[in-house]
Amino acid sequence: MVRLEHVHKYFNRDTQREVHALDDISLVIEDGEFTVITGTSGCGKTTLLNAIGALDSVDSGRITIGETEITQLDERERAALRLQDIGFVFQAYNLIPVLNVAENIGFIMRLQGYHHEAIEKRIREVAAILEIDHRLSAMPNELSGGQQQRVAVARAVAAKPGLVLADEPTANLDSKNSQRLMQMMKNLNEIEKTTILFASHDDYVVEMSRRQIILSDGHVEKM
């Protein structure tokens, strides 16, 4: 479970360019949810996702993932939390260019110290679900945008994190690939019970998700 209590985040604080990016956000995301944070551009979706993912710090308030209050963690502990408990899917695919598909998918598990055979088995498993099992030895630059994003999703879920955060995962995809990706992610959510939290203003993502959190100017407009 993810819990946010009175979270505030400012950019350029105490300057003329101050932006109150997150304004007293309080919400709860239960385990197994398939939820989207939506809103207009600049409303704070990505900032909120980065705060939940321990990528950015907040100025005040508490964010708790499971039993861990991440707002109290130092940089080393936040890195460890991201590695162990959170999967990330970014808008721009962000695969590691020097690793092939299989190595990208197994990257997190390798860092976590899984045994080689367990990694190989899991790579085949998620690659099959995401229909990229025929491209395991390809390099990222040999893949289409849709395939790259599916590899990114596979990497995010391979180590079975408690929470997957996907920031505008369909932004660079055409509608056909967007629908395909969302369907696959929904399948993963159902099969593996992974909590998936999107930040997106893509109508199809909003439509597919089971819960929508609408942000407006940094505060929750509707949950």
Binding site: R76, A79, R82, L83, F88, N94, I96, I108, L111
Partner: peptide
């Protein structure tokens, strides 16, 4: 920088 930022985002410590 982006690639190294990605590694850190994925949980690789700056050390």
């Amino acid at each position: 920088i982006r690639e190294l930022g990605l590694l850190r985002a994925l949980g690789v410590h700056s050390y």
